[in-house]
Structures are given as C-alpha cells and as structure tokens.
C-alpha cells in the first residue's frame, strides 16, 4: 500500500514541478487578444459603443461582455475584421450604438468661440488647442470625428465637416447599385 502511495506521490510531485517550471517559462504578459482587438478598432475614442474608449471596449469584447457590433466608426469593415479575428459570425451594426457615417472632422467657428475650454476637456485625443478666454481651434490631423466636443460647447460654435478631398485620400466612387441609375446609364450609352 505504501509503495502505491509513494509512487503516485512521486509522480504527482514530478508533474507539479514540471508544470511549475513551464508556467514560469511560458508566462503571458497582459492579454494579447485585447491588443489585437484594440488594433482593429478605429481609435476614435468616441464612446458610442457604451465604453469609455476603444481600449475598454476591446477589453470588454475579449472578456465576452460586449458584442462585436457596437462600433459605428469602425463600420462593417471593422465588424468583419473582428469576426475574423475572434472566429465568430459577422453581424450588422447595432442601431442602438449609432449609424456608420463618413469620416468627419470638427471645426470651431472661431468668431463665436468664447474660450471656455469645455471642448478641450471633452476631447479624448487632445486635438483641440487653446487656453482660457482665448480662441480655440481643432488640429484637423488629430481629430477623430468623435463628436464629443459638440455637446459641451455653450455657444454651439463647433460643427462637423466632411474631410476635404485631397489627392492623398481620394477614392474611386463605388458603382451605383440601384436599378434606376443603371437604367439611365444604359439609356445614355444607347
């Protein structure tokens, strides 16, 4: 009987030592899945998903607390990329979180700005420049179009404009899918 107990004890002890050693060698720092999800998210930090920013949303997806269809700025492309990464089925954007819109930037109407700094505090990416009682302005290159600065502005001097078309961001327009347009094209060709 003692032989059996000792044999099993030795076996278990050796296994435990081996696993302990492996655990030290193969330690994983942080959660790499969160990094990968975060890399797909558009980093607008807009909070439309219901979380404080892209990183918290990524953590919630990784933990299974949030669905993958809550990011309007990421749009369908983002959802498909997330579904691909996580091995889930893609699904349409949750309308509760908003609709997919073309990328915009905020512009401050500088004649009306009273220099209250409220929009500076609201901006998640520090894209607004200015000081108290001085005019503010938006650094267009840094602006993610999250619209978080619009609500706090007491004089409503911030509005969204589509990004101006330049050689750098111009894209070929998609072919029109609705039959009316195609018909008129065919008529024009005839």
């Amino acid at each position: 009987m003692w032989v059996a107990v000792i044999a099993l004890g030795v076996l278990a002890g050796a296994s435990g030592l081996m696993l302990g050693f492996a655990a030290v060698r193969l330690r994983v720092e942080g959660d790499p899945v969160v990094e990968k999800i975060d890399a797909i998210l558009p980093q607008t930090q807009c909070g439309q998903c219901g979380f404080a920013g892209c990183r918290p949303y990524a953590e919630a997806i990784a933990a299974g607390e949030a669905d993958i269809n809550q990011c309007p700025p990421g749009g369908e492309t983002g959802i498909v990329a997330l579904a691909e990464l996580l091995g889930r089925d893609p699904k349409p954007l949750n309308p509760e979180n908003g609709a997919e819109k073309p990328k915009m930037v905020a512009v401050i109407d500088e004649r009306n700005c009273i220099g209250c700094t409220l929009c500076i505090q609201a901006c998640p990416v520090d894209a607004i420049l200015g000081a108290a009682k001085h005019m503010h302005t938006v650094i267009a290159k840094e602006c993610t179009g999250c619209e978080l600065c619009i609500a706090p502005c007491p004089v409503d001097c911030i509005y969204m404009t589509p990004i101006a078309q330049t050689i750098a961001n111009w894209k070929w327009t998609y072919p029109l899918a609705d039959t009316g347009a195609r018909g008129s094209v065919e008529q024009a060709a005839a």
Binding site: L26, V28, P32, V33
Partner: peptide
C-alpha cells in the same frame, strides 16, 4: 496561450 492567444480564446 503563449503561441496563439486567439486560438486560446476560440
């Protein structure tokens, strides 16, 4: 877990 975190989660 170390080599393929996505597979680990899947």
């Amino acid at each position: 877990h170390k080599t393929s975190p996505v597979l680990y989660q899947a």
